[in-house]
Amino acid sequence: METITHTMQHDHRRCDDLFVSAEELIANKQWDEGGNTFRNFQNALEHHFRMEEQVLFPEFEKQSGSTAGPTQVMRSEHEQMRELVSDMAAAVELQNQDDYLGLSETLLIMMQQHNAKEENILYPMTDQVLAPQLPDLLGRLDQVD
């Protein structure tokens, strides 16, 4: 059966792949293609954040009755990642390779530890707490633009 964990995990891997391609292109100073791939990554990441912030987290918070729990920490980590990504966008504009690679190294660890927390803890918890409305929820995740 399709689960939140599976769907979201899959989306993490999609972002990872774009991240790696952009980093490799920029490490080889292929700025045109690298810049395009970076923007695709940026869009994929933002889309992933929207799925969580607009659908998943509010539903989870409704069930648990609190906005101060784990979702709050996840939202704040999204903010931290947005900061990094916007600095990376600036580095792409300026074609500053050192800055980009330093920032991408940082984002990689930030993203991976964040994903691990979601995949190990938050998503399985969501699958359990929101089990009855799972099909509806998955449908709504699909519709996030």
């Binding site: 704040s76 903010e79 931290q80 900061e83 600095d87 050192d98 800055d99 690679l101 330093g102 920032l103 190294e105 940082t106 660890i109 930030m110």
Partner: peptide, 24 residues
């Protein structure tokens, strides 16, 4: 990096200071 950036955001400083990245 994580603690510095978290600190900056929680103090409400926005992006006043560029926090050094891991390679810096």
């Amino acid at each position: 990096w994580f603690h510095l950036q978290h600190h900056q955001l929680s103090l409400g400083l926005g992006r006043k200071y560029a926090i050094p990245n891991m390679k810096q």
